[in-house]
Design a protein around this nucleic acid. Structure first.
Length: 173
DNA sequence: GTAACGATCCTC
DNA sequence: AGGATCGTTACA
C-alpha cells in the first residue's frame, strides 16, 4: 500500500527508521515497474540542525523542505550526483530523509544514477506521482544507528547525532 | 559581479 | 590520496 502524506507528516526521527524495509517503487513512462527495499536512511531535522540545508534558512533550494511531508527533494552534490530525499514533518518544519541505500545499490549517488532520477523530480508528490512512490511492506527489520556521513562541517554536536539508520546485515550479504 | 564549497564516487 | 564537476551560497 502506497504511503500517504499523513505518514510523511510525522517527525523525521520517526519516519526515517520506519522507512527501512519498505519498498521504493519506480515506474518508467512505459509502465515498467521496479521495486527496491530501502536499507539505509538519514534524518535531517530543522533549521537548528547545522547539517541540514535548511539551517541556512529559506532559500530557493530549501523552500521545498518547508512544505508538509510527502514531497520529493532532489539536489545535486559535487556537480555530479543527485541525492534523493523525502520531505517530512508539518508545514514550516523543514525536515527531510536522505535515501542512502536500497537493495542492490549502496550509496545515495549510485541509487539515483541507477534509477535515472534527477532534478526534474524535485517537488513531486509521493502520494500521487506516477514515477516514484513508497509502499508499506509490513516488514520492520532490525536496524542499527550511527552518525551521519559527510557532515563533519556541522560540528561535533550535530555531526555526532545518531541519525543514520541502517538495516542490520545490509552490507554483509 | 566573484569565489568557495560540498548529505559522493571512482581511480590511482 | 586526489580528481571530477557545477549549482548554491556567501560576500563584496
Amino acid at each position: 500500500m502506497r504511503l500517504s502524506r499523513k505518514f510523511f507528516s510525522q517527525d523525521v526521527l520517526k519516519v526515517a527508521p520506519a522507512l527501512l524495509g519498505m519498498d521504493l517503487v519506480h515506474q518508467f513512462p512505459d509502465k515498467t515497474v521496479n521495486r527496491y527495499t530501502i536499507l539505509e536512511t538519514e534524518a535531517y531535522r530543522g533549521e537548528t540542525d547545522l547539517a541540514c540545508h535548511a539551517s541556512k534558512g529559506k532559500t530557493k533550494r530549501t523552500l521545498i523542505m518547508y512544505e508538509p511531508g510527502g514531497c520529493v527533494y532532489m539536489y545535486l552534490i559535487y556537480g555530479m550526483y543527485w541525492m534523493l530525499n523525502f520531505v517530512t514533518g508539518k508545514l514550516n518544519e523543514p525536515q527531510a530523509v536522505l535515501i542512502r541505500g536500497i537493495k542492490g545499490f549502496n550509496g545515495p549517488g549510485k541509487l539515483t544514477r541507477a534509477l535515472t532520477l534527477n532534478g526534474s523530480l524535485n517537488g513531486a508528490d509521493l502520494e500521487h506521482d506516477d514515477q516514484l512512490w513508497v509502499e508499506n511492506t509490513g516488514i520492520s527489520p532490525a536496524y542499527t544507528t550511527g552518525p551521519r556521513i559527510g557532515v563533519a562541517y556541522a560540528g561535533e554536536e550535530w555531526a555526532g547525532k545518531p541519525w543514520r539508520f541502517l538495516v542490520k546485515g545490509a552490507y554483509s550479504k
